[in-house]
Write a protein that binds this DNA or RNA. Structure first.
Lengths: 358, 358
DNA sequence: GTCCTTCCTGGGACCGGTCCCGCATACATT
DNA sequence: AATGTATGCGGGACCGGTCCCAGGAAGGAC
């Protein structure tokens, strides 16, 4: 259909090998020849066919991003980090929303393998081990962003969830709270477990034995946070503060609290996790533990490209742990009154991934 | 590297043509032969190479999605609609964030053309006409989602922005407001212009001549909404209500209003546009004009695939106009007190695109 | 002048599929 | 028995590039 490399060759009066050389910036081409080829390319508006190229270079310049739901602002921010970095590496990102369903995930992986993507980034929550070994045997590199799979030896970049949980609980403790509830995520998610672990550590360090009654499981969504908080309040357990495993659940919790005519933070203090955009809204001012969402994606992508480019070909798997950051706003009572607009979350230059090998 | 179709053929004792037939579900294959081939495929874990296939079928099963920023919840929702539908059509979506920069957009288009995507969906704001004619000449179908380019004859699906603007202003008018400000988006964006047009129509119908002083330009972002609203309030123009061209700017406006110690809706009523998730937060309860974001993406994708599959090959370009929907919450004073959780925004079955030809 | 490099270029196998064409066999038709 | 037709399968050109290999021309060393 469109013009091919042969058409260019014919017009420029050279062989297709030479055109190919020009296309790939081979220095061993006479200036004159190069100009002729470039002119011919312009003239017939030739665009190389990446399929044909990929067929024998075994590089497609495309990576897959497996994500549970791009509609979730946390994931959107991670995705943005991934895409920006891919763009720097002249790569494209294929977006795959799995809604956390293993079947969808497996189907997507198959598709990505068929398309011979250069690598895959996983953000989604559950992942089948057999898929991993499949990818491994096909030598398709992959990395986990924002989560990790205990048994799979693979590159990953995560936030220190234990530390984050500790920071959240510790902040509440130093404000004098003693009865602090934890709104957990689904029990199989390691992030939620780790945050709980940090919460327990903080309590124990303060000489308080964690009370299992104060822990209730949610689903990482607003509705679940609302229900969990409502249930907690109904039991009148003397709670004065609550730490939600993510901001969405904190949102639901706030709602439940306000609905009962209670005040935040006077009656109940609230801390979230993630620092999604809504948390910094003037009306909300949620105190929360911020994750470097964009960096998680960007660093994961950088690690992936290092594998792809063969720089880190056969190194052992690396695990980058990023620090969480407590952002103090209004919902715990230390509101300082200043505006707090979206901070620039797109570093002009993404930092090299901190070394940290496992 | 990996096993090829020849390996399968050898193992099954047939020719590669036959394997290809099995792969593509050709009925003219003996049951026995088919079984042998399937078994061979299983045994050596063969995965067809989509590059090789695409090279001569001229179909890649991949579409491009050009978007300004996936981090924007409006776009994320549209993207989700696109991706879900692509998935139904066994296609993948390549995500391209342009930040509205024409240069980035042009670069992405080139890349997508090189990869021979089956089609492209545009959501981003500015688009170079020459890129369009380029795509046209290469016979790569494309459709606009959520916006339209006046001079380019192409498929598009948009919300009726004039009607939306009318609904917003009309709602404020029937609540008794007379001095209604409009926080516009960038002046070159047709959506903002159209919403302004609807706003003017509503005012005129109520016998009020629109006052240019009450219109101020923002940037579709929170910060811009904050600045615009602050400027407006500083001028003491007797404003009792404000219509923001999108929810982000409404957020900023709310902030400016609260900062001055004014109350919403008692002192100033606020209406937004889009209905992004934050708008329904209990703490915010923003009255706004909802766009069917998911459907915009899904319908755009459906239209694109109709072009790709040749069903709508040479039909004239179609323009689908979706109705906006006024969602009354708290910020205008008709708060009814009921909770308002995320409504199910993923239709199990996406409606056929309403016919409507241009 | 001969030989060796270095630079530039062309030829052609190959990447891994699809698909057209042609052939063999089996069975129905006249 | 001769002819026609449907089914099942193999051979090989082709999609549009990359890249190895070989060869010619030019320049330097002896």
């Amino acid at each position: 259909m469109g013009p091919t490399i042969r058409d260019v060759a014919r017009l420029a009066g050279v062989s297709k090998s030479t055109v190919s050389r020009v296309l790939n910036g081979d220095p061993n081409v006479a200036e004159e020849t190069r100009n002729a080829v470039v002119a011919a390319i312009k003239e017939i508006r030739y665009t190389p066919n990446a399929l044909a190229r990929g067929l024998n270079t075994r590089k497609t310049g495309t990576i897959g991003l497996i994500i549970s739901d791009i509609t979730n602002p946390f994931h959107a921010e991670v995705a943005r980090g991934v895409e920006d970095l891919a763009s720097d590496f002249d790569s494209n990102v294929i977006l795959c929303n799995t809604d956390g369903r293993p079947k969808k995930e497996a189907a997507y992986i198959d598709l990505l393998v068929e398309k011979r993507v250069d690598g895959i980034i996983f953000t989604s929550v559950k992942t089948d081990e057999s898929d991993m070994t499949n990818l491994r045997s096909r030598r398709i590199p992959f990395v986990f962003a924002g989560r990790t799979l205990p048994d799979v030896a693979a590159d990953s970049v995560v936030v220190d969830n234990i530390l984050g949980g500790f920071q959240a609980a510790n902040h509440l403790l130093r404000l004098g709270h003693q009865r602090i509830a934890y709104l957990a995520g689904p029990s199989h998610v390691s992030a939620s477990m780790d945050r709980h672990e940090g919460y327990c550590q903080a309590l124990r360090r303060a000489g308080i034995e964690p009370d299992p009654q104060l822990v209730i499981e949610g689903d990482f969504k607003q509705e679940g946070g609302y229900r969990a908080m409502s249930a907690l309040l109904d039991r009148s357990l003397g709670i004065t503060a609550v730490f939600a495993a993510n901001d969405y659940m904190a949102m639901g919790a706030l709602e439940a609290i306000y609905e009962r005519g209670l005040r935040v933070p006077e009656d109940i203090a609230v801390v979230g996790f993630d620092d999604i955009p809504f948390a910094r809204l003037h009306l909300v001012q949620l105190t929360t533990v911020a994750q470097p969402k964009y960096d998680i994606g960007a660093i994961a992508a950088r690690m992936l490209f290092e594998r792809i480019d063969g720089k880190a070909q056969d190194e052992p798997s690396r695990r980058v742990v990023l620090p969480p950051r407590l952002v103090i706003r209004r919902t715990c009572g230390e509101y300082l009154g200043q505006r707090d607009f979206a901070e620039p979350n797109r570093p002009s230059r993404v930092a090299e991934p901190p070394v940290g090998t496992t």
